[in-house]
């Protein structure tokens, strides 16, 4: 009964439904994008009606929201935060800077493509994306979770060497603990 595929499918559907409707966001306010989060959460756009809620610590969060550019110094902290989060976890890249560097495309101290360092599930395009766009991004993430396609965390575990290699190329003094899942 426990290893039965059909019963597992039913459990998956129920769990994915609950994950879809209860998204706790850790908004890592790295760049200017953090300014769009308060209007999304408060009265005007009210993301809480979709079950989207702010989480206080990485241990409690489901979604890591990376708002804007990431400097090489911040990247180290973001990696630590991401690896402290509990499965299942998702990453949303917010703004053009996380896609191709945006207006910081020729900067010497920001990373250009976030997906090389952390597995991004959903990108929200724009500079800045308005709250409507943010809500649309959450809607897309909900759709992916319901279909069981938001599997960035498993991708990260499978290709850990590749991600680690990229991360260590950027961060020369790597003094973080080596995790083994």
């Amino acid at each position: 009964m426990i290893n039965d595929k059909n019963s597992q499918k039913i459990v998956d559907i129920i769990q994915n439904w609950s994950r879809k409707h209860s998204i706790w966001v850790l908004a890592y306010g790295t760049g200017c994008g953090a300014i769009e989060i308060p209007p999304t959460m408060t009265s005007r756009y009210d993301a809480e009606r979709l079950g989207v809620r702010g989480a206080a610590t990485p241990r409690q969060a489901d979604v890591l929201l990376i708002t804007g550019y990431l400097t090489t110094k911040t990247l180290k902290r973001v990696i630590r935060v991401y690896e402290q989060m509990q499965d299942p976890k998702y990453v949303i890249g917010f703004g053009s800077c996380t896609i191709n560097g945006g207006m910081y495309y020729d900067s010497y101290n920001t990373i250009k493509v976030l997906d090389k360092y952390l597995p991004v599930d959903v990108y929200i395009n724009g500079c800045m994306p308005r709250p409507e766009a943010v809500l649309a991004g959450f809607g897309k993430l909900q759709q992916l979770i319901a279909e069981g396609k938001a599997n960035g965390a498993t991708k990260y575990k499978e290709n850990l060497e590749w991600y680690r290699g990229n991360q260590k190329k950027i961060i020369p003094n790597w003094v973080m603990p080596e995790y083994n899942w």
């Binding site: 129920i14 769990q15 409707h21 209860s22 408060t42 009210d46 009606r49 079950g51």
Partner: peptide
Amino acid sequence: IQNRKGPPFYQNFIDALK
């Protein structure tokens, strides 16, 4: 009270399940 729509009243059950 804050002039929002707010989550449904069963939101905490969904949170607990998740």
